[in-house]
Design a protein around this nucleic acid. Structure first.
Lengths: 126, 126
DNA sequence: TGTCAACATAGACACATGTCGAAGTATGAT
DNA sequence: ATCATACTTCGACATGTGTCTATGTTGACA
């Protein structure tokens, strides 16, 4: 039994669509929705995490091992710490293959955030 | 000369398009871009701020005075503090009219964030 | 002028966060 | 078994953040 929980118990499923929250202009956010969303934005609210996420997202195969993206100006434990936070927020998933641990983005979550920021004019009426 | 700087010196212009950053999958974010973007996400990384923003964004006239959105479960000074942060991040603009101060969203900034989160398959090559 | 209402700021406090060095855990090679 | 590599976790520290109460500023009105 491994003491480490890499890729186990992701806060949100990897390939599951997250119907998190409505567009921000559709009406006032409920408190639970606001908490959920704020947690996602918080995960991207650090420059180092944003660069790590960007590196994974822009990597050729759609995935990258830690060693590929480690060069962001902070120590390696700090990189691991940030990757963990991105995992816990459901923005990245991880998988160990041999010696390396590969990270990839969880598309649906990011799509949900983008949809939420989508400022459509109408929305109100329906 | 007013000692208060409401609606003066917004960090980014109110109606100016912010060509902040490319889509996150287009390549690795530069350090300055990452800092800029992280600051915007950070502004939305608090549940109370997110609800305030949502209230302004979903308000009929596209704008709201503080008294209209003040009911978010925290004290009035705290509301003011959060609105200031949203202003400094360039997500809201404010304008005083008589006794009241009206806030409205700065659309281009939010649009830029949404564009940045847009995960298109394209970019990924082939 | 004085007073009230609608905000903004100041100062203080508890708590969260980013960072590091050191140590632990898995996997593969010698 | 021993060692090296690729990570993760731990413990500690300085700094940042959200919240409050108290106070200041601005505008409207009597």
């Amino acid at each position: 039994m491994s003491k480490y929980d890499v890729a186990e118990l992701p806060v949100v499923g990897p390939e599951v669509v997250v119907p998190c929250c409505p567009p921000i202009t559709a009406g006032e956010l409920s408190v639970p929705d606001a908490k959920r969303m704020a947690a996602m934005f918080k995960a991207l609210s650090d420059p180092v995490r944003l660069r790590l996420f960007s590196k994974v997202a822009s990597h050729p195969a759609g995935e990258a091992c830690v060693c590929d993206i480690m060069d962001v100006g902070v120590s390696q434990p700090t990189v691991s710490h940030h990757l963990k936070k991105l995992r816990e927020a459901g923005l990245l998933t991880s998988e160990r293959r041999g010696t390396w641990v590969y990270y990839r983005v969880a598309p649906s979550v990011v799509a949900a955030m983008a949809a939420m920021l989508d400022l459509r004019p109408a929305a109100a009426g329906s």
